[in-house]
Design a protein around this nucleic acid. Sequence first.
DNA 1: AGGGAAACCCGAACGC
DNA 2: TGCGTTCGGGTTTCCC
Length: 277
Amino acid sequence: MPELPEIETIRRFLTAGSDEQPGILGERITQADLIWPGSLAAPAQEEFFRRITGQCILEITRRGKYLVFKLDDGYLLFHLRMSGDLILEPSEAEIAPHHRLVLYLAGGRRLAFNDTRKFGRSWLVSDPRQVTGKLGPEPLDPDFDARQFYDNLQRSRRQLKPLLMDQTFLAGLGNIYTDEALHRARLHPLTPAHLVSTGQAEALFTAIRQTLEDGIRHNGSSIDWVYRGGDFQNYFRVYGRKGQPCPVCGTNIEKMVVGQRGTHFCPACQPLKTEGM
DNA sequence: AGGGAAACCCGAACGC
DNA sequence: TGCGTTCGGGTTTCCC
């Protein structure tokens, strides 16, 4: 389930390649095959085929959980949602189950958008901001600092967990890394944002960055049957560890539902701060 | 404004 | 073993 570190891992792989094969920068798209039309959010199919064919992939960047392919003319964006993946394979390989969109490259390879649950989407647009325009700041952006983060927290009375997962507040955190970052910062998921002190905001800011950087360093997490390659799942402090000891204090990790999401935390390390405390 | 829920999906895990 | 049921997870949309 790709969050920022997993998306970044895929981005780096497609850009720089691996020991086995080079990346795809500079490759020309010779043909596109839309296997499940629902995976294309925009434009309409005919226009998509007309505009994508013959274009070169110049650059691959990331904005929040979106992958942004810069083409000769326009941008191709992917959101992998829960179960999506981008796979590089020989053009003559058999179309695997759950392939939704495939782009044939001039060099004899094929980029496949594979998505078991059909949640993922792609867009071909002239300006990526048409898709990513409402996203909040990038947590790893050097120009974004703890002070701005604190100011943003001050403006909200929402619970930290849903707020951090709100992509218009901060771009890139999903359920897993949010739980991990809150534990690292010793903040309860239900803490009202405006009650977070400057010191706590700084700790949370640092925790978010460290959690994401650790995830990226480990090439992301490979959980479920989805994305494979990373091993950060072996270093989770709280996520999926209900009933197991907190790595800091040994108290059993608890699980609750916050904003309809499974939320893991240590009741001892992350006490709930309320108004008046 | 913000919380809750439903919808979109399907494989895995669970219960019997 | 095999069947039916429940669950999860990112985002959008709708309702209160």
